[in-house]
Nucleic acid binder design. Structure first.
Length: 459
RNA sequence: GUGGUUGUAGCUCAGCUGGUUAGAGCAUCAGAUUGUGGUUCUGAGGGUCGCGGGUUCGAACCCCGUCAUCCACCCCA
């Protein structure tokens, strides 16, 4: 049998893990710096928790877990009708936000609000794999729940900027607001079909405003309306703006005002407030861009939405998030608003590799600083004592476990990029010295055991 | 779910218009070097050519099917 792993999953070898850990640790340290607390939730959730939270497409991409045990046999043998719930009642988590909402409701009495939590775990999607798209991948989420303040949005933007600055990945932070999109939907008389509408609007960059309107018409989604004239001008002019210019925004705001779209105006106010606070308080290293076509597919967003795209790398977004006003409501805890962002570690990895950002990082070296060559029974005991001493002094040391040829043991040290090798044979044991070899220079020196730490630059 | 790409040694690939024992580099192992790696030299092992069927005197190569892979659409981290 040829061994293989499921479609869209990957093994991570030591070299990759070192790089991945660097990414995890960097993100984690920024989260901690901002006062977030870590939690974990189970890989699987009850389907009732997951279903209907991610839109129609999301439901299709849920990994469902087959019920185990006698149930399966029963189903196979039964001639009666099989209900969905008999076959599967659990699913792998699709993101970290929905399980978090479930967690908050379940633990509401233990939580002090506003609750700032972060979570670093895998999620699974039954998508077709392709570039930058996997069926199992990690998300690093930071959410603030139980606070309506827009300062939270500001903080998330700061975190995003900080993280990608540390990675040296140039990014564009795109922002928009679902309330603005709702406002536009109102002007187009599309209030009822909001979901369909934003999916079409999302394509504006590819097919243009006219393309969007044509597609809306084709789908019978729009009615000709004087208001549309007003809004289409504003949209066309305000597709994007960067770095604080709010010209285009005020344009759209005017349209909202004339048409009395309260949500729309609220959305504009929020975007402007967030932008102003960011610019007043923070020197961003990356550019922030208002993009009216930014929609995001997840159903639960209601306010600010954020998406981060790496410049010069085509890979979709590396980070995304937004505000959800009533995600906990479905689980029985209404009126709790939250905002969050999610970093896609696997895509960040791909981007860093493409931009050759790992080259500058020392990720190849083994953690072991010194290897003791194994010469035989007596030497083993002698060396093991030394190894133990070195370890208690905080030096990563190991003894080669088998009495293999020296050549093989040296190759082992070399392959693992262990910088020092200690050779202790009969002669050395007699003299109480250790022959220390620097693997980079090839130099060898006889030293006393108390000098080892010094020699390998640990003192 | 729709469209396309590619499947040859552990890895990366070559293999002419179908023609005899299917090759290379890297990796592995052994030796040159019985207390020394990374360099060099010598040698060795390793392949149902994704799988199944068909055409043919003859198929890695052509045809059909199937599976896998990667890429694009959709959607997304």
């Amino acid at each position: 049998m040829k061994p293989s792993i499921p479609k869209g999953t990957r093994d991570f070898s030591p070299a990759e893990m070192q790089r991945r850990n660097y990414i995890f640790e960097t993100i984690k340290s920024v989260f901690l710096l901002h006062g977030f607390q870590q939690i974990e939730t189970p890989a699987m959730e009850n389907l009732s928790v997951l279903e209907g939270k991610y839109g129609e497409e999301g439901d299709k991409l849920l990994f469902r877990i087959l019920n185990s045990g006698p149930v399966l046999e029963q189903i196979r043998n039964s001639k009666s009708e099989i209900r969905n719930a008999d076959v599967t009642e659990k699913g792998l988590r699709y993101d970290l936000t929905v399980p978090f909402a479930r967690y908050v409701v379940q633990h509401r009495n233990e939580i002090t609000f506003p609750f700032k939590r972060f979570q670093i775990q895998q999620v699974w999607r039954a998508d077709r794999p392709q570039k930058g798209r996997y069926r199992e991948f990690y998300q690093c989420d930071a959410d603030i729940i139980g606070s309506n303040s827009l300062l939270n949005e500001v903080e998330l933007i700061q975190i995003v900027d900080k993280v990608f600055t540390q990675f040296k990945i140039p990014v564009t932070i795109k922002v928009n607001n679902r309330k603005i999109l709702q406002g536009i939907a109102e002007l187009y008389n599309l209030k009822e079909k909001f979901k369909d509408f934003i999916i079409v609007l999302d394509k504006i960059e590819k097919i243009g405003l006219e393309g969007v309107e044509n597609e809306l018409k084709e789908k019978g989604l729009t009615q000709i309306n004087i208001r549309t004239v007003l809004i289409r001008q504003s949209i066309a002019r305000g597709l994007k703006f960067t770095d604080g210019s709010d010209m285009a925004l005020s344009d759209i705001n005017n349209a909202f005002q004339k048409c009395e779209s309260e949500v729309g105006m609220k959305g504009i106010t929020e975007v402007v407030a967030i932008a102003n606070t960011v610019y007043e308080t923070t020197e961003l290293k990356n550019s922030i861009e208002f993009d009216i076509s930014l929609a995001r597919g997840l159903d639960y967003y209601t306010g600010a939405i954020i998406e981060v795209k790496a410049k010069d790398v085509q890979i979709g977004s590396v980070c995304g998030g937004g505000r959800y006003d009533d995600l906990t409501g479905i689980f029985g805890l209404p009126n709790v608003s939250g905002v969050g962002i999610s970093f896609g570690v696997d895509r960040i990895y791909d981007v860093m590799e493409e931009l050759k950002l790992f080259d500058a990082l020392q990720t190849e070296q083994s953690s072991t600083e010194i290897l003791f060559v194994n010469f035989g029974e007596k030497e083993e005991i002698f060396c093991l004592k030394l190894v133990t001493e070195l370890r208690s002094a905080g030096i990563a040391a190991e003894l080669y476990p088998d009495r293999d040829k020296i050549k093989k043991q040296m190759s082992y040290a070399n392959d693992r990029k262990i910088p020092f090798v200690a050779l202790v044979g009969e002669e050395e044991m007699k003299s109480g010295k250790v022959k220390l070899k620097d693997m980079n220079s090839g130099e060898e020196k006889l030293v006393g055991k108390e000098q080892i730490a010094e020699m390998i630059g640990k003192k």
